[in-house]
């Protein structure tokens, strides 16, 4: 089954790495197929950033995400920009501190979305004491909420992708994400 995931936020939040970790977890550690693509503008920090991952147990031809089954929004701007593409009945994961959910109540109902909340940014600051791992908290939330990749594969993929010496903090962040995500 082909599943399309889009992780979006602003540049510097690490949404690209989050997508790479999900794609790598699926393809190298769950042994199915994954393609990760991204779009970015000229700015290295700030600006809109989006990372797309297609996961399938079959060969993936068309590599791009058209209508996500899962949208992870780490900023309000990203949510508004990309939610319109969501499939009917899709999953939406948001950081409630970063978006105004009230603004899209009607849309959620119309599109019959399942919404998960993960206070990734706050958790990062308060629990992990390392601001830059909000994306890994989100990977934990995605894994727990959607089961798109196995927990074991996600852990291996994180260890394979983060800089040496930061493994423990990142695994802490992942576990926090698994714990805090709620419907």
């Amino acid at each position: 089954m082909r599943k399309e995931i889009r992780i979006a936020g602003f540049g510097g939040q690490g949404v690209i790495l989050a997508g790479i970790i999900i794609g790598k977890a699926a393809s190298l550690f769950d042994n199915i197929n994954a393609v990760q693509t991204q779009s970015y503008g000229p700015e290295a920090r700030g600006g809109a950033s989006k990372c797309d991952v297609v996961i399938s147990d079959e060969e993936i031809d068309y590599p791009k995400v058209e209508n996500p089954d899962i949208l992870v929004a780490m900023s309000h701007e990203a949510l508004i920009k990309y939610m319109v593409d969501l499939k009917q009945g899709a999953t939406l994961i948001i950081d409630p501190d970063m978006v105004q959910e009230d603004d899209i109540k009607d849309f959620i109902k119309e599109r019959d979305l399942t919404v998960y909340h993960a206070k990734a940014t706050a958790t990062t600051v308060n629990e992990i004491h390392l601001k830059i791992v909000a994306n890994i908290v989100m990977v934990g939330a995605i894994t727990k909420a959607t089961g798109i990749v196995s927990e074991e594969a996600a852990r291996k993929s994180i260890l394979d992708s983060v800089p040496k010496g930061t493994e423990n903090k990142n695994i802490d962040a992942f576990e926090a994400g698994m714990r805090i995500v709620e419907a």
Binding site: G23, S27, A34, V35, Q36, T37, Q38, I60, P63
Partner: peptide, 9 residues
Amino acid sequence: ESIGHMREK
């Protein structure tokens, strides 16, 4: 660019 920046196994 699409193949250059795409990640796959």
